[in-house]
Amino acid sequence: MHSKLMLLFYDNYVRFVASSANLFEIDWLILQNIVFIQDIPLNLNRQFAPTEFGTTLTQALRDLSVPEQVVANIIHMDLSRVAVHIVTSVPTISTRSKFHADAYGLVKLSQIARRLQQQNANIYDNSIKDPMNTELYCYGSSMGRLTNKFLSDFFCSAMGVSWSELQQKLGNRATISNIAQRVKVGFHTNYQGDTNKFGASSRVCIKFKPDFFYN
């Protein structure tokens, strides 16, 4: 998977866009995708206080070799009303990703989940007591190698627990197969699969057990 971020600059605001779609027409007109959008006030004559969102975004853009002319404007964006966390990625084939390995992917997701648990203990209480009561959902323009191991690691990270902690809570229920089934993967319809740029073969590139699917 890879980051799909857009920063659209206007006179007095920046539109932040995080999308599961690639910049191909078919991803927007045929396939189903998810888009998060927030308009952020921009004032080039003022420097705003740093936020975790801004720090994470700045680091990700620099690691992705985005021109400094763009990155330098983040300090002029009023991020105080951004109420989400950003979990992004950089190419693992690049040495730059190794410098900030704990700032991306599942490691970053786990850090955020643990912090949210501490801040909202009453909300997470039931999920933490028995993680098997929790279901997670993921959706994307295209699917990579969603193996049982990856899905179970994704579940642990999103719950903010390590595999050993999960085993302590669940005992013999903590198998990779059982945990992987707590993650529901949204995939494209038959029509979408048949008409996308990869053809019908895109629907069979991932092998799931029958009980992984639900209508």
Score class of each variant (00 low, 15 high):
104 Y>L: 14
171 G>R: 03
134 T>N: 00
36 F>E: 03
203 R>P: 05
53 F>G: 08
98 K>G: 11
114 R>C: 09
33 N>G: 07
88 T>Q: 10
39 D>E: 14
202 S>G: 05
199 G>T: 09
193 G>V: 13
51 T>E: 04
91 P>S: 12
100 H>S: 12
135 E>A: 00
150 F>I: 08
10 Y>K: 09
124 Y>S: 11
24 F>A: 13
165 E>C: 04
199 G>V: 05
191 Y>C: 10
68 E>I: 05
10 Y>T: 03
179 I>W: 06
101 A>F: 15
40 I>N: 11
156 C>K: 08
140 G>F: 03
62 R>F: 04
161 V>H: 07
143 M>Q: 11
167 Q>N: 04
168 Q>E: 10
205 C>H: 06
124 Y>T: 04
211 D>K: 07
173 R>V: 03
195 T>R: 15
48 F>L: 05
28 W>Y: 15
109 L>S: 11
33 N>I: 08
185 V>Q: 07
193 G>M: 11
59 Q>M: 13
154 F>A: 05
62 R>Y: 05
65 S>P: 01
130 D>Y: 00
213 F>W: 06
69 Q>I: 07
41 P>N: 12
27 D>K: 08
22 N>L: 15
51 T>H: 08
95 T>V: 13
20 S>H: 11
2 H>E: 11
14 V>T: 04
25 E>M: 13
138 C>D: 01
124 Y>C: 04
132 M>S: 01
184 K>F: 08
210 P>I: 07
9 F>P: 03
74 I>L: 15
54 G>M: 08
161 V>Q: 07
201 S>T: 13
15 R>F: 06
55 T>K: 11
196 N>I: 05
37 I>L: 14
84 V>F: 10
39 D>Q: 11
50 P>G: 03
171 G>F: 02
84 V>N: 02
143 M>D: 05
16 F>I: 12
150 F>C: 01
38 Q>Y: 11
83 A>H: 06
215 N>W: 02
159 M>D: 08
172 N>Q: 06
69 Q>R: 12
149 K>C: 03
105 G>R: 15
198 F>R: 10
26 I>N: 14
157 S>C: 13
175 T>K: 09
39 D>S: 09
91 P>Q: 06
138 C>R: 01
34 I>P: 00
33 N>F: 11
135 E>D: 00
57 L>C: 10
140 G>A: 04
203 R>N: 12
83 A>L: 06
178 N>L: 06
147 T>F: 01
206 I>L: 06
114 R>M: 07
161 V>F: 09
134 T>W: 01
67 P>H: 09
50 P>N: 10
131 P>Q: 02
20 S>K: 13
84 V>S: 06
162 S>F: 06
58 T>Y: 06
156 C>Y: 04
179 I>P: 03
211 D>T: 06
214 Y>P: 00
155 F>K: 01
154 F>M: 10
22 N>A: 13
100 H>A: 07
212 F>P: 03
198 F>K: 12
50 P>D: 14
5 L>R: 10
155 F>I: 00
192 Q>P: 09
101 A>S: 15
72 A>F: 05
126 N>H: 02
78 D>R: 11
200 A>K: 15
138 C>A: 01
202 S>Y: 07
125 D>R: 12
9 F>G: 00
192 Q>I: 12
200 A>H: 13
76 H>A: 12
185 V>K: 09
6 M>V: 05
3 S>D: 09
79 L>I: 11
105 G>E: 13
123 I>F: 13
52 E>G: 08
30 I>N: 08
